[in-house]
């Protein structure tokens, strides 16, 4: 990851993570990782299970406190002590587990922890239902059974609620952990469209994915983690799928590697 200051006139990074470390007893899950995210940039975060990518993302989303390192958002050093803190800084997360309360309905889940209230502090269920209907309709027009508990909904519908919850509020930085794992082809296409739309709005996105096709389709840049370390960070047009796989598996590029875009120019 380049540590150089941005050229004058270039947009400042949305997120700068510097020297992030996370220890669990003697185990080092994240080892001195530094990572930036620019506005309107989609960064693919790759690595096999246990490489530390989920851990890193959980630190940014406030779900886990780092052992060392600092996080800057919009240039300011911030404390991510809790998911509330992260949300206050415009960091929204779509968890792989979706993090939905199964017994509650879609609007209740969408607004969980940020309920809309009437003047008297009562839950404003009517307004929450109307708002939920609006935002869910933009993602999936067939979503009508809003008052059913989410446990009775399909995987795709549940995923849509988790996505809606992240984009409904004032999101600046979006973390998507395997957002298409539970989805069929048409819904996956919908998520891809959504990512492009959000990118156009200047939102920065970390996309954690195992799907090479998604990564090459959507990302501007890929970073690869291996054994807690950041082993590679490349603009997407610089690498082949095989290069990425090599980074994921061996933690290094193939010995004969040359940037793909330069290769093409030759």
């Amino acid at each position: 990851m380049s540590q150089t200051q941005p050229a004058p006139g270039a947009p400042a990074p949305l997120v700068e993570m510097r020297g992030i470390e996370k220890h669990f007893g003697g185990v080092v899950a994240v080892n001195g990782v530094s990572l930036d995210l620019m506005p309107g940039e989609v960064v693919g975060v790759l690595g096999h299970n246990g490489a530390g990518k989920s851990c890193l993302m959980r630190i940014l989303s406030g779900a886990m406190a780092p052992s060392h390192g600092e996080i800057r958002i919009g240039g300011e050093v911030v404390e991510m002590g809790s998911p509330q803190d992260a949300r206050a800084h415009g960091v929204e997360t779509i968890y792989q587990t979706l993090a939905l309360a199964d017994h509650l309905d879609a609007p209740a889940n969408l607004f969980l922890g940020r309920e809309l209230k009437t003047r008297f502090g009562n839950l404003d269920d009517k307004r929450m239902l109307a708002e939920a209907r609006k935002v869910l309709a933009t993602l999936n027009p067939n979503f009508t059974n809003l008052k059913d508990p989410v446990s009775s909904l399909s995987g795709g519908q549940r995923q849509v609620i988790a996505i809606a919850r992240a984009i409904y509020f004032d999101v600046k930085i979006l973390i998507m952990d395997e957002p298409t794992a539970a989805l069929g082809p048409s819904e996956t296409a919908m998520v891809a469209d959504l990512i492009r739309k959000l990118r156009a709005q200047g939102i920065g996105i970390f996309l954690v994915s195992h799907d090479m096709h998604d990564v090459f389709d959507l990302c501007d840049r890929v970073v690869v983690m291996n054994k807690g370390k950041l082993v590679g960070a490349h603009p997407i047009d610089e690498v082949h799928k095989d290069d990425i796989l090599s980074l994921i598996i061996k933690g290094e590029l193939p010995t004969d590697w040359r940037p793909r875009n330069l290769e093409a120019a030759q």
Partner: peptide, 16 residues
């Protein structure tokens, strides 16, 4: 209260 009992981790991540 319902959210906590339904899925404690989800409630926590949602800011409850």
């Amino acid at each position: 209260i319902y959210a906590t009992g339904s899925n404690e981790e989800a409630a926590r991540l949602s800011g409850v």
